[in-house]
Design a protein around this nucleic acid. Structure first.
Lengths: 340, 340
DNA sequence: TTTCAACACGAAAACGTTTTCGAAAGGTTT
DNA sequence: AAACCTTTCGAAAACGTTTTCGTGTTGAAA
């Protein structure tokens, strides 16, 4: 077992000083060619690589990005990480991933953990609990310390920092509009409880388009699902008691569940019922029928978030304070679950 | 903007030495209660937290686990990360994730990057290219340096280290056996090319069970799919030219694709064709019909891998050299895609 | 012969910790 | 009063880098 070699060991072995070794390896003109080549050869032989931790301590930069998200077994979040990792990699950064598990406490703990020197900045999406409590002191703390933070998807306007989102409201508007343009009128909405920022925005978009078309809002067509547990129950209730033409679901899971339940009742899709879902994930692509979705380009979101963060990191001194909110465009991917 | 406070600053402010501050905060009996309380109060006021980087450098431990996997937008790998993160969190470790993107070069680069002090050990699953080239020098290098490595799922017997896998061969055997027990004889296999370790093992299990039942192997029923591009094409060919009773697919994607293509041809599932897939992911659970799968408990694999790695890390000195291979049990989750 | 520049290298500080050891001050024992 | 012990603290080393500054040697110019 050959442990990693350090500058000190090389110096000792070659009977020169540590500084000479360091300078030689960095091709400093201060060092004579003789010594330089000798040191470089020796370093290569022993496969010397500078210790990252020591560099981080010296430079006060870790070249590491902290990602804190609610969960990772989730197609959208996985794609975002993938996007972040792409640009991080291109720029020589590593990513360290923490999961809040939708818990406020875990989010705080993870953040404090990473904030003590482990990362240069954060990219995060808020946990449900955090959005509900509206307690952002952990984020504020980190920002006050001068660490850049980029929020994506599940954001809060109470926090001043860079953000990257999709225009949830507009997307919901357009998707619903698409359904209306197909002559559908009784459009149900499967959404989450309102404290989830994106759920609220999507609901707003839905409400606006109905209003703009002079369609009266039937509150009983808006199903707010808290957890996936009572999902089936609530959807069944809707399908049995109401005659609906179409469904807009704020995520794939609600959509595919609704489709399954409907088909079980002999309701034909898309003939009797059209379905559109947010989040273009695996399920929509492979379910039967395939589901028309609003694509939420996770890769692009991740890439954008990483670019914004790294830009701030490399700018360093210039505390711009001029925070931006980037909007990633969505598009409707039309598949089999909607009438053509 | 209040930057993080250090021991030195506290020391200066309180007009004591750095050592005194450090000792006070760690409740050393060397320090008088007066000074101790004074320092602690001050530290609390300024929210002092030790700098992780400095600690890492001093302790020669980063409390960080490096994860290198082929991709993250993949249900199985995401669940494994989730499992790793769980125990890592419980044990006070962080995880830093790198994606090899199925590329040998990226795997090597990421590994060398992290090996220079960034992590205490690795948990990885080999990229396709690495398995094909059978070049493991980067792993060997790291292991020689005394860093523990745990391989999962896509492993190689050429590398001496801890491993955690499922018994792919047995699982394939049992799944195929299940199909045979339902009276099915003409069982096709949708697999990957042989250099992917798990693909090979699953194929072997399939072959063994046929042999044990005295069923002759029809090579034309074994479809080796290199990339997803020609997936449809090859499966269509099979369905058109051969009469098959059942299909065993080494992943969900092949299975759901086969089901879709079959249904398009009017083949009824499971009446005319039974389908079993490896990997119990999202697709199997939500496709129509739902798919019978061999569950590959990613969470448990991740947890196990993390436990093995951390155990080695905490053991530290005792270089056991006694590497273990843990086998995670699988079970057949019977759903709608197979006859009952 | 003196002065000075160029060259080649080393010492030391710095990053933020922890820990070992030494030492001053005060009190207690002979 | 001398010797010794306790208490309380500080100096310094160590982890592995990079970088600034100083210094000794050489050769050339005056």
């Amino acid at each position: 077992m050959r442990r990693k070699v350090t500058l000190k060991q090389i110096a000792k072995e070659l009977d020169v000083s540590i500084s000479t070794v360091s300078k030689s390896l960095r091709d400093s003109p201060e060092i004579s060619e003789d010594t330089r080549l000798k040191v470089q050869a020796f370093a290569k032989l022993y496969n010397y690589k500078p210790n990252n931790i020591a560099l981080s301590l010296k430079n006060k930069k870790t070249k590491t990005i902290g990602i804190i998200i609610p969960e990772i077994v989730h197609h959208f979040f996985a794609t975002v990480i993938s996007g972040i990792e792409q640009v991080a990699n291109e720029c020589g950064y590593n990513v360290i991933v923490c999961l809040s598990d939708e818990s406020f406490d875990k989010e705080v703990i993870n953040m404090e953990m990473l904030a003590n020197g482990s990362t240069d900045g954060f990219i995060m999406s808020l946990s449900k609990e955090t959005q509900q409590k509206k307690d952002f002191h952990h984020l504020q703390e980190v920002i006050n310390q001068g660490m850049p933070v980029v929020l994506f998807d599940r954001i809060s306007n109470d926090i001043l920092c860079d953000k990257v989102i999709i225009d949830d409201q507009l997307a919901a508007y357009e998707a619903t509009n698409f359904l209306i343009s197909k002559g559908l009128k009784k459009i149900a909405l499967l959404t989450t409880v309102d404290y989830v920022s994106v759920g609220k925005l999507r609901t707003d978009g839905y409400l606006n388009v109905l209003h703009d078309h002079g369609i009266e809002v039937d509150e009983s067509l808006i199903i707010r699902i808290e957890d996936t547990e009572h999902c089936d129950e609530k959807i069944n209730e809707l399908l049995e008691n109401k005659s609906v033409d179409a469904i807009l679901a704020v995520n794939e899971l609600f959509a595919v569940t609704a489709i399954k339940l409907a088909m079980a009742k002999g309701i034909k899709i898309p003939e009797d019922l059209s379905v559109v879902a947010f989040t273009d994930g695996i399920i929509s692509k492979y379910s039967t029928p395939t589901i028309t979705t609003i694509s939420q380009n996770g890769i692009k979101m991740g890439r954008k978030a990483a670019e914004m963060l790294i830009k701030r990191l490399e700018l360093e001194d210039e505390e711009d304070e001029h925070y931006k909110t980037e909007i990633i465009e969505t598009n409707l991917i039309i598949r089999e679950s909607t009438k053509s």
